[in-house]
Design a protein around this nucleic acid. Sequence first.
DNA 1: TAGATTGTTAATCGATTAACAATC
DNA 2: TAGATTGTTAATCGATTAACAATC
Lengths: 207, 207
Amino acid sequence: MKKVISQATIDRLPLYFRTLRLVEEEEKQIISSDELGRRLDITPEQIRKDLATFGQFGRKGIGYDVHELKNKIANILGLHNNWRLAIVGIGHLGGALANYGNFDTLGFSVVALLDINENIIGSEVNGLKIENSALMKDVIEKKFVDIGVITVPASEAQAVAEQLIEAGIKGIWNFAPIKLSVPANIPLVNEDLSVGLSALSYHMSQC
Amino acid sequence: MKKVISQATIDRLPLYFRTLRLVEEEEKQIISSDELGRRLDITPEQIRKDLATFGQFGRKGIGYDVHELKNKIANILGLHNNWRLAIVGIGHLGGALANYGNFDTLGFSVVALLDINENIIGSEVNGLKIENSALMKDVIEKKFVDIGVITVPASEAQAVAEQLIEAGIKGIWNFAPIKLSVPANIPLVNEDLSVGLSALSYHMSQC
DNA sequence: TAGATTGTTAATCGATTAACAATC
DNA sequence: TAGATTGTTAATCGATTAACAATC
């Protein structure tokens, strides 16, 4: 039953989801792979292939039910789990993420903010108090945190990852530009801004 | 001469660059593909293949000169161009990017901040004054901006992209969760946080 | 019925991995 | 010379694209 789905497919699902939401707002009931593809610059064959991985969602000759497909994708991605996030390292980036509204709309909630800096512990960001990293295990257990978001400097990131795992976290979203070593059963996604920016630089240099 | 390099290779170059920097700080002169691979969880064959795309950098039986390879990669990525960035939309994320120190170390400079909100125009972020988006063309020409960073809401992003291009920008780094339409000669990199977070959710759901 | 569109199989393309000669 | 390590060719693997029968 646990077929292996390619990362490329998984990474396209959020795009489909996002677009179906917009289409839903436009009060369209049905959408074809062709139309969805046009909106995303993805071929309709690719979309049908991706979706077929998870079952038969469409109707031949008709298309896909927008509302139904949107919910199916949300389920596949596990967005119904109401994942709870803790952000570790409340600098500029951590603070921005704490304030970032779009997570809620995807079914994620930021429930804890942690930092080691005495000067900011106790202060509030977006209505949430910054707590002492030293109490991480306590906070994470009490607040049922699922996902640890790492926005500390690269030099601290591995240690923070280990603390998070020790505290019982189930997944890590890492913004520090460094390769983290984590056990195979802890999903890890890296969000390295320098990769995208460097790729942009490369393409601009080719012009 | 203009061989086509795969995006996968281009996306790994910044990781090599980052690691070579660290290795350089450790005062190591020479590194093997094996050691580099161990540090990044990438196979040595993959690394040698990637590097061979651009020429012969290593010495058989010895390895790669750390300093030389680092500079070669920087050149390939175009990091010597001193690209100048303008951030459009100084909300939480735009503000965080304006304050983000790591860009400088990669050879990028944030030289302009733009917003339409009268209440924040004129105020300073990280020593840089927020200017009126209505004056975009002026600002971009006067400050020789190369790259437009889009951190406005999704609903505004396409219009901003068009204004940026009209103003003579050479590349776009887009953080708005929407597919932008831009001419083929304008490199565009999308940084969609919801993709990574959704992928994390997917993998956590499989456990 | 004719037109539209899915789901799936087959063909192609491209990226990764394996193997090894060259050489320091 | 023996051991280490690159650069490159060949083999494999996986993802995308093309084609088309099924069916609304």
